[in-house]
Write a protein that binds this DNA or RNA. Structure first.
Lengths: 144, 144
DNA sequence: ATGTATGCAAAACATTTGCACCTGG
DNA sequence: CCAGGTGCAAATGTTTTGCATACAT
Protein backbone atom coordinates (compact mmCIF):
# COMPACT_ATOMS: atom_id res chain seq x y z
CA UNK A 1 0.00 0.00 0.00
CA UNK A 2 1.76 3.10 -1.24
CA UNK A 3 1.47 6.46 0.48
CA UNK A 4 2.94 9.95 0.58
CA UNK A 5 6.35 8.56 1.49
CA UNK A 6 6.52 6.66 -1.76
CA UNK A 7 5.76 9.86 -3.59
CA UNK A 8 8.53 11.73 -1.82
CA UNK A 9 10.94 8.91 -2.51
CA UNK A 10 10.13 9.43 -6.16
CA UNK A 11 10.87 13.14 -5.85
CA UNK A 12 7.21 14.08 -6.06
CA UNK A 13 5.45 16.36 -3.60
CA UNK A 14 2.63 14.67 -1.76
CA UNK A 15 -0.13 16.79 -3.22
CA UNK A 16 -3.81 16.14 -2.93
CA UNK A 17 -4.38 15.11 -6.57
CA UNK A 18 -1.46 12.71 -6.50
CA UNK A 19 -2.55 11.07 -3.27
CA UNK A 20 -6.08 10.82 -4.56
CA UNK A 21 -5.00 9.16 -7.78
CA UNK A 22 -2.79 6.77 -5.86
CA UNK A 23 -5.75 5.83 -3.70
CA UNK A 24 -8.04 5.33 -6.65
CA UNK A 25 -5.62 3.00 -8.38
CA UNK A 26 -5.03 1.02 -5.20
CA UNK A 27 -8.64 0.52 -4.27
CA UNK A 28 -10.21 0.24 -7.70
CA UNK A 29 -12.37 -2.81 -8.24
CA UNK A 30 -10.98 -2.96 -11.75
CA UNK A 31 -7.21 -2.90 -11.46
CA UNK A 32 -6.87 -1.59 -15.01
CA UNK A 33 -8.14 1.91 -15.62
CA UNK A 34 -7.88 4.47 -18.40
CA UNK A 35 -6.88 8.05 -17.59
CA UNK A 36 -10.50 9.01 -18.15
CA UNK A 37 -11.65 6.33 -15.71
CA UNK A 38 -9.39 7.77 -13.05
CA UNK A 39 -10.52 11.29 -13.87
CA UNK A 40 -14.21 10.38 -13.59
CA UNK A 41 -13.53 8.56 -10.35
CA UNK A 42 -11.95 11.69 -8.94
CA UNK A 43 -14.86 13.87 -9.95
CA UNK A 44 -17.28 11.30 -8.55
CA UNK A 45 -15.60 11.50 -5.18
CA UNK A 46 -16.13 15.24 -5.20
CA UNK A 47 -12.59 16.16 -6.11
CA UNK A 48 -11.53 19.22 -8.10
CA UNK A 49 -9.49 17.79 -10.92
CA UNK A 50 -8.25 18.34 -14.43
CA UNK A 51 -7.83 15.57 -16.94
CA UNK A 52 -4.44 17.02 -17.86
CA UNK A 53 -3.28 16.57 -14.29
CA UNK A 54 -4.41 12.97 -14.30
CA UNK A 55 -2.35 12.32 -17.41
CA UNK A 56 0.63 14.18 -15.97
CA UNK A 57 0.47 12.34 -12.68
CA UNK A 58 0.01 8.94 -14.29
CA UNK A 59 2.99 9.60 -16.53
CA UNK A 60 5.07 10.61 -13.52
CA UNK A 61 3.95 7.54 -11.62
CA UNK A 62 4.92 5.41 -14.56
CA UNK A 63 8.37 7.00 -14.71
CA UNK A 64 8.71 6.39 -10.98
CA UNK A 65 7.78 2.76 -11.43
CA UNK A 66 4.66 3.09 -9.29
CA UNK A 67 2.26 2.23 -12.09
CA UNK A 68 2.45 0.38 -15.39
CA UNK A 69 0.94 1.64 -18.61
CA UNK A 70 -0.48 -0.78 -21.16
CA UNK A 71 -1.41 -0.12 -24.76
CA UNK A 72 -4.09 -2.64 -25.52
CA UNK A 73 -5.93 -2.50 -28.81
CA UNK A 74 -8.52 0.20 -29.00
CA UNK A 75 -6.50 3.36 -28.74
CA UNK A 76 -6.72 4.25 -25.06
CA UNK A 77 -3.97 3.39 -22.61
CA UNK A 78 -4.77 1.65 -19.33
CA UNK A 79 -2.88 1.94 -16.07
CA UNK A 80 -2.48 -0.44 -13.15
CA UNK A 81 -0.53 -0.32 -9.89
CA UNK A 82 2.86 -1.94 -10.16
CA UNK A 83 2.75 -4.86 -7.76
CA UNK A 84 6.33 -5.78 -8.42
CA UNK A 85 5.77 -9.05 -10.20
CA UNK A 86 5.56 -9.13 -13.98
CA UNK A 87 2.51 -10.66 -15.55
CA UNK A 88 0.77 -10.82 -18.90
CA UNK A 89 -2.82 -10.06 -19.85
CA UNK A 90 -5.90 -11.54 -21.40
CA UNK A 91 -8.45 -8.97 -22.51
CA UNK A 92 -12.07 -9.84 -23.20
CA UNK A 93 -13.11 -8.22 -26.46
CA UNK A 94 -16.74 -8.29 -25.30
CA UNK A 95 -16.62 -6.79 -21.82
CA UNK A 96 -13.10 -5.33 -21.83
CA UNK A 97 -12.36 -7.11 -18.60
CA UNK A 98 -8.67 -7.77 -18.04
CA UNK A 99 -7.26 -11.00 -16.63
CA UNK A 100 -3.69 -11.44 -15.48
CA UNK A 101 -1.54 -14.51 -15.78
CA UNK A 102 2.06 -15.55 -15.63
CA UNK A 103 3.61 -18.53 -17.33
CA UNK A 104 7.25 -19.20 -16.41
CA UNK A 105 7.75 -21.32 -19.50
CA UNK A 106 6.70 -18.45 -21.75
CA UNK A 107 8.91 -16.01 -19.90
CA UNK A 108 11.82 -18.36 -20.29
CA UNK A 109 11.29 -18.90 -23.99
CA UNK A 110 11.05 -15.17 -24.57
CA UNK A 111 14.40 -14.66 -22.95
CA UNK A 112 15.89 -17.34 -25.15
CA UNK A 113 14.39 -15.96 -28.34
CA UNK A 114 15.75 -12.49 -27.62
CA UNK A 115 19.14 -13.83 -26.66
CA UNK A 116 19.44 -15.93 -29.78
CA UNK A 117 18.72 -12.84 -31.88
CA UNK A 118 21.35 -10.82 -30.06
CA UNK A 119 18.57 -8.64 -28.75
CA UNK A 120 18.84 -6.86 -25.39
CA UNK A 121 15.33 -7.15 -24.04
CA UNK A 122 14.07 -4.14 -22.10
CA UNK A 123 10.45 -5.07 -21.79
CA UNK A 124 7.88 -7.31 -23.32
CA UNK A 125 4.15 -7.61 -23.43
CA UNK A 126 1.92 -10.52 -24.24
CA UNK A 127 -1.75 -9.87 -24.88
CA UNK A 128 -4.39 -12.49 -25.51
CA UNK A 129 -7.67 -11.18 -26.90
CA UNK A 130 -10.81 -13.24 -26.88
CA UNK A 131 -14.02 -14.00 -25.11
CA UNK A 132 -14.00 -14.51 -21.36
CA UNK A 133 -15.66 -17.28 -19.42
CA UNK A 134 -18.62 -15.20 -18.25
CA UNK A 135 -19.44 -14.28 -21.80
CA UNK A 136 -19.39 -17.88 -22.94
CA UNK A 137 -21.55 -19.09 -20.08
CA UNK A 138 -24.13 -16.36 -19.66
CA UNK A 139 -24.21 -14.92 -23.11
CA UNK A 140 -22.76 -11.72 -21.81
CA UNK A 141 -20.08 -10.39 -19.51
CA UNK A 142 -20.53 -8.11 -16.56
CA UNK A 143 -19.94 -4.95 -18.53
CA UNK A 144 -22.08 -5.54 -21.55
CA UNK B 1 1.75 -12.24 -54.50
CA UNK B 2 -1.67 -10.65 -54.31
CA UNK B 3 -3.28 -8.85 -57.23
CA UNK B 4 -6.53 -7.35 -58.46
CA UNK B 5 -8.27 -10.71 -58.18
CA UNK B 6 -7.64 -10.81 -54.47
CA UNK B 7 -9.19 -7.38 -54.19
CA UNK B 8 -12.29 -8.47 -56.07
CA UNK B 9 -12.55 -11.56 -53.95
CA UNK B 10 -12.65 -9.24 -50.98
CA UNK B 11 -15.43 -7.22 -52.57
CA UNK B 12 -13.16 -4.32 -53.35
CA UNK B 13 -12.89 -2.69 -56.74
CA UNK B 14 -9.45 -2.94 -58.27
CA UNK B 15 -8.68 0.75 -58.21
CA UNK B 16 -5.33 2.33 -58.81
CA UNK B 17 -4.72 3.50 -55.24
CA UNK B 18 -5.56 0.05 -53.88
CA UNK B 19 -3.32 -1.76 -56.34
CA UNK B 20 -0.54 0.70 -55.65
CA UNK B 21 -0.80 0.24 -51.89
CA UNK B 22 -0.83 -3.51 -52.33
CA UNK B 23 2.32 -3.29 -54.40
CA UNK B 24 4.07 -1.05 -51.92
CA UNK B 25 3.36 -3.40 -49.04
CA UNK B 26 4.49 -6.43 -51.01
CA UNK B 27 7.75 -5.01 -52.25
CA UNK B 28 8.72 -2.84 -49.31
CA UNK B 29 12.22 -3.42 -47.96
CA UNK B 30 10.78 -2.90 -44.50
CA UNK B 31 7.82 -5.22 -44.17
CA UNK B 32 6.31 -3.08 -41.42
CA UNK B 33 5.12 0.35 -42.47
CA UNK B 34 3.01 3.09 -40.92
CA UNK B 35 0.17 4.64 -42.90
CA UNK B 36 2.36 7.67 -43.38
CA UNK B 37 5.20 5.52 -44.71
CA UNK B 38 2.87 4.06 -47.30
CA UNK B 39 1.53 7.51 -48.15
CA UNK B 40 5.01 8.97 -48.65
CA UNK B 41 5.98 5.98 -50.72
CA UNK B 42 3.02 6.61 -52.99
CA UNK B 43 3.87 10.27 -53.44
CA UNK B 44 7.50 9.34 -54.06
CA UNK B 45 6.47 7.10 -56.92
CA UNK B 46 4.61 10.01 -58.45
CA UNK B 47 1.16 8.91 -57.41
CA UNK B 48 -1.77 11.18 -56.68
CA UNK B 49 -2.86 10.16 -53.21
CA UNK B 50 -4.59 11.27 -50.08
CA UNK B 51 -3.55 10.13 -46.64
CA UNK B 52 -7.20 9.49 -45.83
CA UNK B 53 -7.40 7.02 -48.68
CA UNK B 54 -4.33 5.21 -47.42
CA UNK B 55 -5.96 4.81 -44.02
CA UNK B 56 -9.25 3.73 -45.56
CA UNK B 57 -7.61 1.19 -47.85
CA UNK B 58 -5.38 -0.22 -45.12
CA UNK B 59 -8.40 -0.63 -42.87
CA UNK B 60 -10.30 -2.41 -45.64
CA UNK B 61 -7.32 -4.64 -46.34
CA UNK B 62 -7.14 -5.49 -42.68
CA UNK B 63 -10.83 -6.38 -42.61
CA UNK B 64 -10.28 -8.55 -45.68
CA UNK B 65 -7.39 -10.31 -44.00
CA UNK B 66 -4.88 -9.09 -46.56
CA UNK B 67 -2.82 -7.10 -44.10
CA UNK B 68 -2.25 -7.14 -40.37
CA UNK B 69 -2.24 -4.05 -38.20
CA UNK B 70 0.01 -3.82 -35.16
CA UNK B 71 -0.15 -1.34 -32.33
CA UNK B 72 3.37 -1.16 -31.03
CA UNK B 73 4.28 1.35 -28.39
CA UNK B 74 4.70 4.85 -29.69
CA UNK B 75 1.22 5.72 -30.90
CA UNK B 76 1.38 4.97 -34.62
CA UNK B 77 0.06 1.73 -36.04
CA UNK B 78 2.16 -0.33 -38.46
CA UNK B 79 0.91 -2.60 -41.22
CA UNK B 80 2.38 -5.67 -42.86
CA UNK B 81 1.21 -8.08 -45.54
CA UNK B 82 -0.49 -11.13 -44.10
CA UNK B 83 1.68 -14.03 -45.16
CA UNK B 84 -0.62 -16.55 -43.61
CA UNK B 85 1.63 -17.77 -40.85
CA UNK B 86 1.37 -16.17 -37.43
CA UNK B 87 4.49 -14.71 -35.89
CA UNK B 88 5.47 -12.43 -33.05
CA UNK B 89 7.65 -9.33 -33.04
CA UNK B 90 10.73 -7.82 -31.51
CA UNK B 91 10.96 -4.05 -31.90
CA UNK B 92 14.22 -2.15 -31.48
CA UNK B 93 13.57 0.89 -29.33
CA UNK B 94 16.56 2.62 -30.90
CA UNK B 95 16.04 2.18 -34.63
CA UNK B 96 12.41 1.02 -34.68
CA UNK B 97 13.39 -1.94 -36.78
CA UNK B 98 11.02 -4.89 -36.47
CA UNK B 99 12.11 -8.52 -36.26
CA UNK B 100 9.79 -11.47 -36.59
CA UNK B 101 9.98 -14.77 -34.79
CA UNK B 102 7.87 -17.75 -33.98
CA UNK B 103 8.26 -20.05 -31.04
CA UNK B 104 6.00 -23.12 -31.07
CA UNK B 105 6.49 -23.63 -27.35
CA UNK B 106 5.20 -20.14 -26.60
CA UNK B 107 2.26 -20.59 -28.93
CA UNK B 108 1.40 -23.84 -27.24
CA UNK B 109 1.61 -22.41 -23.72
CA UNK B 110 -0.61 -19.51 -24.71
CA UNK B 111 -3.26 -21.86 -25.91
CA UNK B 112 -3.07 -23.73 -22.63
CA UNK B 113 -3.24 -20.60 -20.52
CA UNK B 114 -6.33 -19.36 -22.35
CA UNK B 115 -7.98 -22.75 -22.20
CA UNK B 116 -7.37 -23.12 -18.47
CA UNK B 117 -9.04 -19.74 -17.91
CA UNK B 118 -12.05 -20.71 -20.00
CA UNK B 119 -11.06 -18.04 -22.46
CA UNK B 120 -11.85 -18.33 -26.18
CA UNK B 121 -8.75 -16.88 -27.80
CA UNK B 122 -9.33 -14.84 -30.92
CA UNK B 123 -5.92 -13.36 -31.34
CA UNK B 124 -2.78 -12.69 -29.42
CA UNK B 125 0.29 -10.54 -29.74
CA UNK B 126 3.68 -10.80 -28.18
CA UNK B 127 6.01 -7.83 -28.40
CA UNK B 128 9.57 -7.76 -27.17
CA UNK B 129 11.10 -4.29 -26.94
CA UNK B 130 14.82 -3.76 -26.59
CA UNK B 131 18.02 -3.01 -28.40
CA UNK B 132 18.84 -4.85 -31.59
CA UNK B 133 22.09 -6.50 -32.51
CA UNK B 134 23.27 -3.75 -34.85
CA UNK B 135 22.81 -1.18 -32.12
CA UNK B 136 24.85 -3.20 -29.68
CA UNK B 137 27.68 -3.85 -32.14
CA UNK B 138 28.01 -0.58 -34.02
CA UNK B 139 26.71 1.85 -31.47
CA UNK B 140 23.80 2.61 -33.71
CA UNK B 141 21.19 0.97 -35.89
CA UNK B 142 20.47 1.64 -39.51
CA UNK B 143 17.82 4.20 -38.86
CA UNK B 144 19.41 6.31 -36.17
C1' DA C 1 -25.09 4.53 -65.98
C1' DT C 2 -24.40 4.02 -61.18
C1' DG C 3 -22.76 2.56 -57.12
C1' DT C 4 -18.04 2.90 -55.21
C1' DA C 5 -13.78 5.28 -54.38
C1' DT C 6 -11.12 9.22 -53.94
C1' DG C 7 -9.22 13.76 -52.33
C1' DC C 8 -9.64 17.46 -49.56
C1' DA C 9 -10.82 19.72 -45.51
C1' DA C 10 -12.83 19.43 -41.25
C1' DA C 11 -13.87 16.47 -37.24
C1' DA C 12 -12.83 13.36 -33.69
C1' DC C 13 -9.96 11.37 -30.20
C1' DA C 14 -6.36 10.62 -26.90
C1' DT C 15 -2.69 12.92 -25.02
C1' DT C 16 0.52 16.91 -24.24
C1' DT C 17 1.87 21.59 -23.35
C1' DG C 18 1.90 26.83 -22.24
C1' DC C 19 0.81 29.75 -18.82
C1' DA C 20 -1.11 32.27 -14.83
C1' DC C 21 -2.51 30.97 -10.42
C1' DC C 22 -2.22 28.08 -6.27
C1' DT C 23 0.05 25.16 -2.60
C1' DG C 24 3.05 22.12 0.04
C1' DG C 25 7.14 22.10 2.92
C1' DC D 1 8.57 32.30 0.62
C1' DC D 2 9.21 29.76 -3.72
C1' DA D 3 9.95 25.84 -6.43
C1' DG D 4 6.99 22.83 -8.00
C1' DG D 5 2.07 21.51 -9.06
C1' DT D 6 -2.49 22.45 -10.84
C1' DG D 7 -6.45 23.80 -13.92
C1' DC D 8 -7.80 25.51 -18.02
C1' DA D 9 -7.50 26.16 -22.78
C1' DA D 10 -5.09 25.61 -26.73
C1' DA D 11 -1.90 22.65 -29.38
C1' DT D 12 -0.50 18.11 -31.13
C1' DG D 13 -0.45 13.87 -33.69
C1' DT D 14 -2.98 10.21 -35.46
C1' DT D 15 -6.89 8.41 -37.50
C1' DT D 16 -11.76 9.09 -39.14
C1' DT D 17 -15.55 11.26 -41.66
C1' DG D 18 -18.57 14.38 -44.70
C1' DC D 19 -19.09 15.65 -49.11
C1' DA D 20 -18.60 16.80 -53.98
C1' DT D 21 -16.12 14.85 -57.74
C1' DA D 22 -14.03 11.00 -60.39
C1' DC D 23 -13.71 6.16 -61.69
C1' DA D 24 -14.43 1.00 -62.39
C1' DT D 25 -17.56 -2.27 -64.24
Amino acid sequence: MKDSNDLKKAGLKATLPRLKILGILENAKTRHMTAEDVYKSMLASGEEAGLATVYRVLTQFEAAGLVIRHNFEGGRAVFEMNQGHHHDHMVCVECNKVFEFNDPAIEDRQRRVAEKAGFVMEEHSLHIYGMCDGMKKHGKCSKK
